[in-house]
Simulated scan of single mutants.
Amino acid sequence: MQKIAPFLWFDGQAEEAANLYTSIFRNSRITEIQRYGEAGPGEKGSVMSVSFELEGEAFIALNGGPAFTFSPAISFFVHCETQDEVDTLWAKLGEGGGQPRQCGWITDRFGVTWQIVPTALGRMLRDKDAAKSKRVMQAMLEMVKLDIAALEAAYEGR
């Protein structure tokens, strides 16, 4: 069992969010749904929490009510190998009212923020040639969804 797991507070959408996330990421599944009983505070039989895995990592989603909301101050960083993976995740997380943000960040319809980032970006930003990494950083800062070909063009000075 994973020692530390993200715990996400939703306002009645925990099961819907968990179903969306497990449909998007491979090696993902719902592992348990807990329902409110006689003691409440939710309606008896309604979903209290959903435990699920994304890419083998444990998460817990709670239907805790409107007291707290999400903020981009906490986000999930997703390493992507290909542009197709970037495009697919970007599209699926943006469905139903998601909000694209700068530099590969997107907030889904539940308010959870994700960073959809090609692994090649890290390699380019760590290059010992400061001019190359600076060009890549400048290109990235001008993007919303990250474009690997455009980042590589900046890296190569094209």
Rank of each mutant, 00 (worst) to 15 (best):
E57L: 13
V144W: 04
S49A: 15
P100I: 09
E85N: 10
E156R: 11
A61Y: 06
I106Y: 00
T88F: 00
G65W: 08
D87E: 14
L20Q: 15
L93W: 01
F59G: 01
S46R: 07
G97T: 11
V117W: 03
C103Q: 07
G157N: 09
K145G: 00
A67W: 08
N19V: 13
G37V: 13
V112C: 07
E15I: 05
W105H: 07
E16G: 05
G104S: 11
F68I: 13
V144D: 11
Q83N: 07
I148G: 00
D147R: 03
G65K: 10
A14P: 04
A149D: 15
R158G: 03
R101N: 12
Q102T: 13
S71M: 11
K128E: 14
R35H: 07
F10Q: 06
M143Y: 02
G56F: 06
K128R: 11
A149N: 14
L89R: 10
A61P: 07
K145W: 02
Y155A: 05
S71V: 12
T82K: 07
V117P: 00
A5Q: 09
R35I: 04
R26G: 09
K132E: 05
Y36W: 15
T82M: 06
A5S: 15
E16T: 13
L20T: 14
F7L: 14
Q99M: 12
M1R: 09
E156G: 05
S133K: 09
A130N: 08
I106H: 01
W114Q: 02
G65P: 04
G12P: 06
M140R: 02
S51R: 15
A131V: 13
V47P: 00
G45F: 05
M1E: 12
D11W: 03
E55W: 04
L20A: 14
E32M: 14
L125K: 05
Y21C: 10
F76R: 05
V112Y: 04
D87I: 02
T31P: 06
E95F: 04
L54T: 12
A17H: 01
R101I: 10
D127S: 12
A14G: 09
W90N: 08
